[in-house]
């Protein structure tokens, strides 16, 4: 389970980095925001599990 959560974390980070590298954070601001929110939620989830 932990492994899969990390996999999702990596994928989210990848999307975020892709948007930053392609300079599309403004163009897809809503998506960027949702991805950040998901990352925060996953972080909270991991802390709760501990």
């Amino acid at each position: 389970m932990q492994h899969q959560t990390e996999k999702i974390e990596q994928q989210l980070a990848h999307i975020q980095k892709w948007l930053e590298d392609k300079d599309k954070t403004l163009e897809y601001a809503a998506i960027y925001e949702e991805i950040s929110k998901m990352e925060r939620e996953l972080l909270q989830l991991k802390e709760k599990r501990k």
Binding site: I8, Q11, L12, H14, I15, W18, K24, Y28
Partner: peptide, 9 residues
């Protein structure tokens, strides 16, 4: 590419 990344996630 973006759709593909989002789809995988």
């Amino acid at each position: 590419e973006l759709v593909s990344l989002l789809e995988k996630c």
